Amino acid sequence: MADSHDKIARHVAIIMDGNGRWAKRKHLPRVMGHRKGVEAVRELVRSLKDTEIECLTLYAFSSENWKRPEEEVDDLMNLMRKFIKSDLPEFIANDVKLKIVGDWQELAPDIVEMLEDALDKTAHGSRTLAVALNYGAHAEIVQAARKAAQVGEINEESIAANLFTADLPPLDLLIRTSGEVRLSNFLLWQAAYAEMLFTDVLWPDFTPAHLKDALDQFAGRERRFGGR
């Protein structure tokens, strides 16, 4: 039987899906869906202090997202610039530590500089917001295996030790919004024994109340980790 500690989701990850469909349903430009999605992120981060979550990981920009129209990619990058600039003081004030997972150093130089500054200024936060930027799980696992091979044997422990998330708690709960039921190359290694929850709610409409409901559902599940 699981003890009470197993009922607490220390690490929650979210595939934030549905911005475009939200905008389409409201007959708005696609970028408006992304802007509303940023507001949803902001509210969720503010609500973390009311939960027992130690780390929230958000899938913000995948390595496959570069295939989107150039105008949409530019809009996403500009939103990222604005979000970092506007919300960094709030992260610091709320003791939130920012972590970036993925090949984020390949982003535009000014964004990389802004991220490095944010990482430095939030380094001592007690609760972590991990943002996946230019991230793909296949590439992450290949990169981790290569690093493991450089220093010794390739096994589960050495690969896990070289993942972007090596210093984070094990993934407990993975949520995807918008009704899609797939992982889209996100945290494939980490999700091996994570509980999963798929909701029809589009990301811009996802609120702290939806997160609380997801945590309640997690608490009601029995985690077996391959056992009986």
Results as ranks from 00 to 15, higher is better:
160 A>K: 12
214 A>K: 03
216 D>F: 06
151 V>L: 13
168 L>V: 10
215 L>S: 01
221 R>W: 00
151 V>A: 15
163 L>S: 12
209 A>W: 04
152 G>R: 08
209 A>S: 14
151 V>T: 15
160 A>Q: 12
180 E>T: 01
183 L>R: 08
149 A>R: 11
199 T>Y: 12
198 F>Y: 14
188 L>T: 07
158 S>P: 07
153 E>K: 15
218 F>V: 03
169 P>N: 10
224 R>H: 12
174 L>G: 02
165 T>K: 04
182 R>A: 14
177 T>E: 12
209 A>C: 01
173 L>P: 00
188 L>A: 11
201 V>I: 14
215 L>T: 02
210 H>Y: 03
158 S>L: 08
198 F>V: 09
217 Q>C: 06
227 G>H: 07
221 R>Y: 05
208 P>M: 09
190 Q>I: 11
203 W>M: 01
173 L>E: 06
222 E>I: 12
156 E>Q: 14
150 Q>A: 14
181 V>Q: 14
200 D>L: 01
151 V>R: 13
220 G>C: 04
218 F>T: 10
191 A>G: 06
155 N>L: 03
190 Q>Y: 01
188 L>P: 05
169 P>K: 11
150 Q>H: 04
172 D>Q: 07
153 E>I: 06
222 E>A: 08
221 R>T: 04
179 G>K: 02
219 A>Q: 00
168 L>C: 10
164 F>Q: 06
224 R>S: 13
224 R>V: 09
193 Y>S: 06
158 S>Y: 02
159 I>H: 13
201 V>Y: 12
195 E>Y: 00
211 L>I: 05
205 D>S: 14
192 A>P: 01
188 L>R: 08
194 A>Q: 09
147 K>C: 03
150 Q>E: 15
156 E>R: 10
223 R>H: 12
176 R>W: 09
208 P>E: 09
228 R>E: 15
173 L>H: 04
163 L>G: 09
212 K>I: 07
219 A>N: 01
228 R>N: 14
188 L>K: 08
206 F>D: 05
202 L>D: 09
179 G>N: 11
177 T>L: 05
190 Q>E: 15
148 A>P: 06
170 P>E: 15
192 A>R: 08
